[in-house]
Design a protein around this nucleic acid. Sequence first.
DNA 1: TGCGTTTCTGAACTATGTTGACTATACTGA
DNA 2: TCAGTATAGTCAACATAGTTCAGAAACGCA
Lengths: 216, 216
Amino acid sequence: MGIVERKERQRAELREQILTAARRIVLDEGFEALTMRKIGDAIEYSPATIYLYFENREAIGRQLCAESFEHLIAYMTPVGQIADPYERLRGIGRCYTRFGFENPEEYRLLFMTDPAFMEALFPPDNTADPKDPGERAFQFVVDAFRAAQAAGAIRPDGDPVALAEMVWTACHGVVSMTLTCNHVLETRPEAIVDMLCDTILRGLATPLTSTVRSAS
Amino acid sequence: MGIVERKERQRAELREQILTAARRIVLDEGFEALTMRKIGDAIEYSPATIYLYFENREAIGRQLCAESFEHLIAYMTPVGQIADPYERLRGIGRCYTRFGFENPEEYRLLFMTDPAFMEALFPPDNTADPKDPGERAFQFVVDAFRAAQAAGAIRPDGDPVALAEMVWTACHGVVSMTLTCNHVLETRPEAIVDMLCDTILRGLATPLTSTVRSAS
DNA sequence: TGCGTTTCTGAACTATGTTGACTATACTGA
DNA sequence: TCAGTATAGTCAACATAGTTCAGAAACGCA
């Protein structure tokens, strides 16, 4: 039955064409600028055809999001090789933010557009299923913290998950603020990231003193 | 000329009505849900009338944004009273993020919607004019860092402006990530903020050690 | 060749921001 | 008091969206 297979192949090809066109538009102009009619023009099909391949515009966004997340993971993979856990943590912070600075529209799509887009990555119900791509990537950071604690590079107290969420949200802040209103920041974003990572790691390396209360 | 004055008053009143209706919609449903027709319904005027009072939808957003910024400043003012500069810095971080958690739509409007909205607060050309409301509020944080340095609560090196931008963006990260996809974070946002502020301040209190390179 | 299935499209529906021609009201000066 | 004018407000329309659905076209099979 070669005909059935060819049909399946053609169907997959057109679906891919739609995604390719959509991706180009999103990377060039952002998700807001993605319209069904523009995709239709690009692939030379009527806009209505797209609905035979995707439920709606949001579904296209979700798929692009999943792909961008793979991009982010590929981007981050090399830093996982850094043996020194302290340096690995610094590398993670720098690499994550660099991804955002170098791929602004992908970063926006992933983390600044629609909560629904992240739900394919981090399903809402089953919290922390290690099979979810988001959870896997996040474990990458948690593991680095565990290793740093084990190596004595940072204080052994403190939940590694909470620590990972802390650096993630902090780094996200630098990227998102830069992407939303770059001109407001006087300091180079990369310099802020470096300072932030250094300061946090130094703060975690320090033994507790009497000036500091309840690290919660 | 009481007639002219009454007309001006009426004009100002309708303008205020428009803003009140718009504010209600934005606080309840977010800026995306703000439509000219909804405002028209609420004030019992045709949507076209709104254009006699505001240039366009964005101009309404800008005005609401300016008001929300005043709200944020009012929110933050009490922490300015804290004498101990170390505690004041902690208070600033907590208070800022609490504003975001308690007034999510205002926070979104201010810092997560449209860069243009911030331009009334932080005009793009004349960088760091102390008359801009954004600059004034930001100086609040810079001053706290300067005081902390002067008091020896944190290391004296490090540009206070860069430090202020660092904590601002980091705190922004916790708020914006929470507002965009709360369910992804396992740790309570407030706990992340506390840990973040403590860690950063501890990192800044520490004298430089050999493990730490180039604080940039 | 004819029939049924699959694929695609045109036209429409709703909703949106925005505009410009028009109307109605209020005011002014005689 | 009234005619003329300025102001305020509205209606209907335009363009652009996402989305749907009835019907057309293409395709495959007997």
